[in-house]
């Protein structure tokens, strides 16, 4: 099994505050790899650091090429799709415009996206800001799936969604993962169990554990110690996500 993404000694900061401290891990080129950890340990910042959305140091290698010196748009152009925390759809643009902006290649995978999220086809002309949270999440995921990426970075795709929608989004990611590897930050451990093959556990801005996702979550003691929760309960959070 080879790796698609190699992160070596990456630190990241927001303003003058360091939020990720020298993390190192690799992401295999197939399947879904979960990033786990308590709230505020730097999971979101790790993804943002890889993308260059926040200041970062250290080595990041995508398919054998260094990307840590590149600006965000160039990294994305090399085949990295990003589904941000809190969706970040453009509220004053229509669904169609949101999707059109994300299209980078001559023949975007519109049919695939339409097949995954038929809802969005119906709501093409609607302002994205007027969609429900679940529909916004679909737009956000769809933006990443329109292109043939080499890697997807997906940040808390099921946060705050109704169970039925969680299921739909998880299904879409599962289907997408057959063709593209995904690095997934997810608090809903049920979803992690369903989707992820490997897992990386971050604590205090560092990687403290890595291994098979189901094994980690199956070990109650380890789960409690590293994630601060029971294996079957969603992480409780103190309302202050990622405020490093």
């Amino acid at each position: 099994m080879s790796t698609i993404l190699e992160v070596a000694g990456m630190s990241a900061s927001i303003g003058s505050q360091q939020v990720v401290e020298s993390v190192s891990f690799s992401v295999p080129d197939t399947g879904i790899t979960a990033v786990l950890g308590r709230n505020g340990v730097g999971k979101t910042s790790t993804l943002r650091g890889i993308l260059g959305l926040i200041k970062r140091k250290g080595e990041v290698t995508l398919a054998g090429e260094r990307i840590d010196g590149l600006p965000t748009h160039r990294i994305v152009q090399r085949g990295v799709g990003y589904v941000p925390e809190d969706r970040e759809v453009f509220a004053s643009l229509t669904v169609a415009e949101n999707l059109a902006l994300a299209e980078r290649q001559a023949n975007p995978r519109r049919d695939f996206v339409a097949h995954l999220f038929p809802d969005l086809v119906e709501r093409r002309a609607q302002m994205a800001g007027t969609l429900s949270g679940g529909q916004q999440q679909m737009v956000s995921v769809a933006r990443a799936l329109l292109n043939d990426n080499r890697l997807l970075l997906v940040d808390e795709p099921t946060k705050g969604l109704a169970p039925r929608i969680v299921n739909e989004v998880a299904g879409a990611l599962e289907e997408a993962s057959r063709t593209v590897p995904i690095l997934l930050v997810e608090q809903n451990l049920e979803v992690v169990k369903r989707l992820a093959k490997d897992a990386i556990v971050i604590d205090g801005g560092r990687v403290v554990h890595r291994g098979d996702a189901r094994e980690i979550l199956g070990d109650e003691e380890l789960t409690r110690r590293l994630l601060g929760v029971h294996g079957d309960a969603p992480a409780d959070g103190h309302g202050t996500e990622e405020r490093a």
Binding site: L53, T72, H73, F90, A100, L101
Partner: peptide, 24 residues
């Protein structure tokens, strides 16, 4: 126009525009 769309999106959230691979 596409540039117009990029500008409208950028006014809302510039970081996300770059995260879609667009040179803002």
């Amino acid at each position: 126009t596409r540039y117009g769309m990029i500008i409208r999106a950028g006014v809302e959230n510039r970081a996300m525009v770059t995260a879609l691979g667009i040179d803002v």
